[in-house]
Simulated assay, not measured.
Amino acid sequence: MDGGGWDRYVADLKTPSSYGTPDVYNGWSQGIGVGFRGFAPGGLGLLVASGDGDDTYQAGDFSQGTGYFFGLGILADSGGDDHYSGARYAQGAAAHQAVGVLLDDSGDDIYHGSVAANQGAAWDASVAVLVDLAGNDRYQGGGLSQGASAMNGVGWLYDRGGNDSYQTPSGQADGGSTRYWGGRGALNLGLLMDEGGRDDYSRPDRMDGAEFRGSRVGLFLDAVSTP
């Protein structure tokens, strides 16, 4: 728990990614709950930064409010113009029956995920949530990002207001494959909800004032601000 100030958190550039992705490193930090697959489930990780400082979070794979294998990971920042930078499974993400949450109360924030599964992204019967309550924010994700899920998960990105930008090659309220472990007969649920402001999306069917329900299942809702 951090009581305030302009802080920089770094968990990057040391151990190469377990996936073998060039120039990507492991993070396993900044609010991550980890279980060890095949050995021990569970784990709780919590990072709380209070105050209005402009904080920087830099990490590799599995970081910034992420849960893994029955773990619960939470990152909560109460204010400031913050910058989050992660790789794979970062910024409110979860995999393998886990829960990951990133909460940011206010500020003009930047979220950047360089590989995949960022910003409210769930995989394999998991729940992942990113909630940003105020500010003009920028979201840049890899694949399966921004309210996206696959393999029977629930992924949710909620932004309460501000003029925001959402950029990702895939996701934005979308549900992907359900064939993991042969399929469980359960759907995915991906949600992206933005309650106001003038927003920009990389997908042409996502826009201000639009509502979209996908067949896999995705729910996109952008509410128009009233004068």
Rank of each mutant, 00 (worst) to 15 (best):
F62E: 13
S215I: 13
F39Y: 13
A93W: 00
A87S: 10
S202N: 08
L130V: 03
F212D: 15
A87L: 01
A94Q: 00
G65I: 00
S202Y: 09
Y19N: 13
T15Y: 12
Y84G: 00
D2K: 12
G100Q: 02
H83V: 15
Y139I: 00
P16N: 06
A93I: 03
L130S: 05
R179S: 12
A40R: 14
G183S: 01
D77K: 15
Y19T: 08
S85N: 09
D2W: 13
W156Q: 13
I32W: 04
D222T: 04
G113C: 01
K14T: 11
T56F: 12
A98D: 14
I32R: 09
V129I: 14
D174K: 06
W6H: 15
D108N: 08
A90H: 12
I74L: 13
A94K: 08
G185I: 00
L221I: 08
R138Q: 06
G42I: 11
F220L: 08
A148I: 04
R184T: 11
G153N: 01
D174N: 15
P41R: 03
A98K: 02
D124P: 01
G92Q: 06
V99Q: 13
S78G: 08
R8H: 14
A122T: 08
P204L: 08
S17D: 07
A49D: 12
Y19A: 12
R160C: 10
L187T: 10
N136E: 05
E195M: 15
N26C: 10
N163G: 11
Q58W: 12
L47G: 05
I110S: 14
Y25R: 05
W28T: 14
A90V: 08
G80T: 02
A93S: 09
H112G: 08
L47D: 02
M1W: 11
P16T: 07
T15L: 09
D61K: 04
D104Y: 05
Q172S: 12
L189N: 03
G20L: 01
T66H: 02
T56H: 13
G53C: 02
P16V: 03
Y111E: 07
P22I: 05
G80D: 06
L192C: 04
L221N: 07
G155M: 08
S225C: 06
G45Q: 00
Y57A: 14
M1A: 14
D55Q: 11
L13D: 14
A94C: 05
G92K: 13
H112P: 05
G53Q: 01
S145A: 01
K14E: 12
Q30C: 07
D23F: 03
Y166Q: 05
G176E: 00
D200V: 15
Q167L: 11
D52K: 13
A125T: 11
A90Q: 10
A90Y: 05
D159V: 14
F62H: 09
Y84E: 04
V24A: 06
A98M: 10
A95Q: 13
A76L: 09
S114K: 07
F69N: 04
R184V: 07
G153R: 04
G107C: 06
G120I: 00
V127P: 01
Y201I: 01
M207E: 14
G197D: 04
E211K: 12
L191R: 10
R206H: 11
A122I: 01
D199F: 07
